[in-house]
Design a binder for these strands. Structure first.
Lengths: 220, 220
DNA sequence: CACGTAAATACTGCTTACAATATAACTTCT
DNA sequence: AGAAGTTATATTGTAAGCAGTATTTACGTG
């Protein structure tokens, strides 16, 4: 194993990404190259390159001569992104489900246990972010579809901050925990049709919640 | 309409993209920043930024300290990309088909006419590239799904060079023209189910052709 | 001759500094 | 006072050059 030599651009990208996902940088806020460069003790070039990378991830809008801003997703865009997620994640699950071993399923269950515990502790931040992604990831782990997975990761990262916001403002999703259990059961039974269908409705119902909130906010 | 002020980065990106798509730069070939910079009469900075952009488009692989290469798609990757295209394009069509006006359909038919003519002239380059994309684009034009469309554009651009290669080596797809006609008919009849199903098989059959060729090439 | 090691090279990554563009502030005129 | 034009300022885009990394070549050693 060779030591990883991280380039400044990568470090800067990680730093800015974290700022956006955590909400430290709010949607729509402009990202000044010089300010970021000084704050992170690098020149503007790695900052520019990091911003370009983040644009590819959909976290940043980069307009020539005008600068970069954290992407502000409209209700319509949220709508479309969640539709895409439903489509793509069902595709992943359909390729993965037959190959899931008992061990995979137990690992998923373990994650689910942590997740439920986090919810009880009130740590919704962790529950909806890292643990939720980890649970879904376990179920897709045998899909062997690298490009599709990359897309799914991108979109889930991208919508995460809106999910968080929703939870903050609306008190979270009451139904999600049970839904996860149901989904896991369907996977254990290798019921492709039903599992995929249920996964889709699971994602789409989350969408409806968030969209309602966003529309309300846009009206203000 | 304000005059567009194109940045050097954008111009460089277009130039390199064209080189890759046209085959002037072959898959796997390294892209030297200094060489490109000199050839295009710019410094290395816009070249680097253009390469980053092309990486986001999937046309280039950018590895730290090792440089950029034109992406070399394996048979597996082609397989996955075409599956994604089938999924996403069917999604677009399903959202667009009801809203397609008689005029949209006539325009699609007009493109189809040009396309068939190009095939007869033997201009498969044009037929499978610009015109094919234009025909499909007309059918998706009322989907109102900007992000999905962007993905589809990306993937079709990305696979175009492999399609071209296939045509060069295998003499083209015998069945495609009739399939386009059939698809158009199904759209005219607003038969969502059948149109989407047919579109999927249309894309997946093209996949099989190309994949077979690629596997053959990989064995050499 | 094989193999590991050290110098040379070719390239990428980054900094500093300058040029070009867009926006904000300020006149000037009606 | 308000609109149009003009300067000033902030910010981005690009260039040239140095610093750092990976790869190749040359060399010595067993």
């Amino acid at each position: 194993m060779s030591i990883e030599h991280k380039t400044r651009t990568q470090l800067v990208a990680e730093a800015i990404r974290e700022k956006i996902l955590s909400g430290e940088i709010k949607a729509g806020e402009p990202l000044r190259q010089a300010a970021l460069a000084e704050e992170l003790n690098v020149s503007r070039i790695p900052v520019r390159e990091a911003l370009l990378q983040l644009e590819a991830e959909g976290l940043v809008n980069f307009e020539a001569h005008k600068g970069a801003t954290a992407t502000q997703l409209s209700a319509d865009q949220i709508d479309e992104i969640f539709d895409l997620r439903a489509l793509l994640e069902a595709e992943l699950l359909s390729h993965s489900i037959q190959k899931l071993t008992p061990r995979d399923l137990l690992e998923a269950e373990a994650v689910l246990y942590d997740l439920e515990e986090a919810v009880e502790r009130g740590d919704t931040q962790l529950a909806t972010g890292k643990l939720n992604a980890e649970f879904h990831g376990k179920l897709y782990s045998k899909a062997d579809r690298p490009q599709t997975s990359e897309l799914v990761d991108m979109y889930s990262k991208n919508s995460e901050r809106y999910v968080r916001m929703h939870i903050l403002l609306a008190g979270g999703f009451a139904t999600a925990p049970e839904e996860h259990r149901t989904l896991l059961e369907l996977c254990k039974n290798k019921d492709i049709e039903q599992a995929c269908a249920f996964l889709k409705t699971h994602i789409l119902s989350a969408k409806e919640d968030i969209k309602a909130l966003l529309i309300k906010m846009e009206q203000e």
